[in-house]
Lab assay of single mutants.
Amino acid sequence: MEVRTIKVFTTVDNINLHTQVVDMSMTYGQQFGPTYLDGADVTKIKPHNSHEGKTFYVLPNDDTLRVEAFEYYHTTDPSFLGRYMSALNHTKKWKYPQVNGLTSIKWADNNCYLATALLTLQQIELKFNPPALQDAYYRARAGEAANFCALILAYCNKTVGELGDVRETMSYLFQHANLDSCKRVLNVVCKTCGQQQTTLKGVEAVMYMGTLSYEQFKKGVQIPCTCGKQATKYLVQQESPFVMMSAPPAQYELKHGTFTCASEYTGNYQCGHYKHITSKETLYCIDGALLTKSSEYKGPITDVFYKENSYTTTIK
């Protein structure tokens, strides 16, 4: 009895394709271990004539594949690729409408935090270190965002349907971005203890939790000093293409032309909904596939993004 075979390709990165001759009487799992086709788990399936010449994702289970996976995804987590594939199996079914010149995501599976993050990423200057993220990001900007969303979920250790947080998501993504040249110098002034300067680099240099107003941050924000008295913390120097200011959701007025974009969060910790506000020729609110415009805006804002380049204080 002759062994019926077909020729397929296996890959971990969709760049390096490895030619395989597979036995049609055995499952993919018996031949390769966990195997995925377009995100779908085909591990328990036997090869079919229609699979001839198709590319299958496999887990990096030998040295060659491990090197290829690390170079593309910059992670050695053995569960990463499987999590990416199972997320992709959902995100490829989502709709990605162009809204006001940006790629958004039609609401499904509690994905409003991903839509808000995706919209924000198209408006701030950011370059990702893992080629996987950078490639998928370019495709997302062009309207094909399924891979990018699935990668975000995998890097953030999230599953489809789980509630997510924009600030946490951005923080994970910033860790995989090139923020080497970003720098922030802060000064804390206390009447009792004097003053202390701190220099922050990388992710810490672009994120701040405690106030939404970048102007206020430049002037000074009140913080408790270690001595128990009130101290003032203010920005001395900022070198970065953008800054992200966050605070627990509270009524906040966004003035046209003073910011790049913002995240609105309605609801409580267990259950809520994100919308995205962007400042173009007027203010726009993007909620999944829905767009509304207004000249002014007041609502429960939790993150505001500002364009920056270089700032030095005039406070002496």
Rank of each mutant, 00 (worst) to 15 (best):
A289G: 12
Y84K: 04
Y28W: 11
T19I: 11
N178K: 09
E264A: 11
L290D: 14
I301L: 07
P130Q: 03
T64R: 10
G220R: 03
Y84G: 03
K191W: 06
I45V: 14
Q222C: 09
F32W: 10
S246F: 00
S79I: 14
D109A: 06
R66V: 11
K233F: 08
G82A: 12
L65S: 11
C271D: 07
A154L: 02
D41C: 13
V189Q: 09
Q31N: 13
G53L: 13
Q98A: 09
F32C: 12
V236G: 00
P224M: 13
P224V: 14
T232W: 10
V58W: 06
S263K: 00
F32L: 12
K229L: 11
H256N: 14
I286S: 01
T211M: 08
K255L: 10
F9T: 09
T35V: 14
Y306L: 03
L291M: 12
V185C: 05
L119K: 03
T258K: 07
S294P: 11
I15Y: 08
A69N: 04
T292A: 13
F305P: 01
T10P: 07
R141F: 08
C285I: 15
S263I: 12
D62Y: 06
V243A: 00
T302I: 00
C271E: 08
L235Y: 01
E162M: 08
V99I: 11
A108L: 05
I286K: 00
L291Y: 10
K298P: 02
K92C: 10
K158G: 02
K219G: 08
M85Y: 07
L118Q: 01
T313C: 15
G101S: 07
Y155H: 03
T313A: 14
G143V: 03
G53M: 13
N111Q: 02
Y113V: 05
V304G: 01
S181N: 08
G53V: 07
K191A: 15
Q123V: 06
G228F: 00
C225I: 00
Q197N: 11
E68V: 05
S263A: 15
L118C: 03
F128C: 05
T75F: 04
K201G: 08
N14A: 14
C227F: 01
K307A: 11
H74E: 07
L173E: 01
K7D: 09
T226M: 10
E239M: 11
Y284E: 12
L133I: 05
Y73W: 04
K44M: 13
D62E: 11
G164Q: 04
A40H: 11
S79V: 08
S25C: 08
R167V: 00
P130S: 06
K307T: 10
D287T: 03
F217W: 08
K233E: 10
T91E: 03
L114S: 02
P249M: 01
A289P: 08
N16W: 06
K201R: 14
V8K: 04
L88M: 08
L291T: 14
L133T: 04
F242D: 00
Q175P: 11
N14C: 09
T116S: 08
H276R: 00
Y297G: 01
N178V: 06
L37G: 08
Y137D: 03
T232Q: 08
Y306P: 00
V203M: 09
P130E: 07
Q238Y: 01
T64D: 12
N49E: 13
F174E: 00
P131M: 04
M24C: 15
I45N: 11
H276D: 00
T76W: 10
E71A: 14
L88H: 05
F305M: 05
P241V: 00
G101V: 02
G39V: 08
C112W: 01
L65M: 10
G82L: 14
N16H: 08
Q175K: 08
L118F: 11
A117M: 05
Q134Y: 05
S104P: 01
H48L: 13
I124V: 08
S240R: 00
A146S: 13
G53T: 11
I152E: 03
T35N: 02
Y28N: 03
I152Y: 02
V99R: 10
A154D: 04
N89I: 07
T10L: 13
Y96F: 11
Y208C: 10
N129Y: 07
G202S: 06
N268K: 07
A142S: 13
T75I: 10
G161A: 06
G29H: 09
H74K: 08
E239S: 10
G272L: 00
E308H: 07
Q31H: 08
T19M: 08
L291G: 09
L121F: 08
D77Q: 07
A132H: 04
A132F: 04
T302K: 01
G272Q: 03
P300E: 10
D62L: 08
L121R: 00
G53Y: 11
M26Y: 14
Q122T: 05
Y311I: 10
L151W: 03
P60D: 09
K54Q: 14
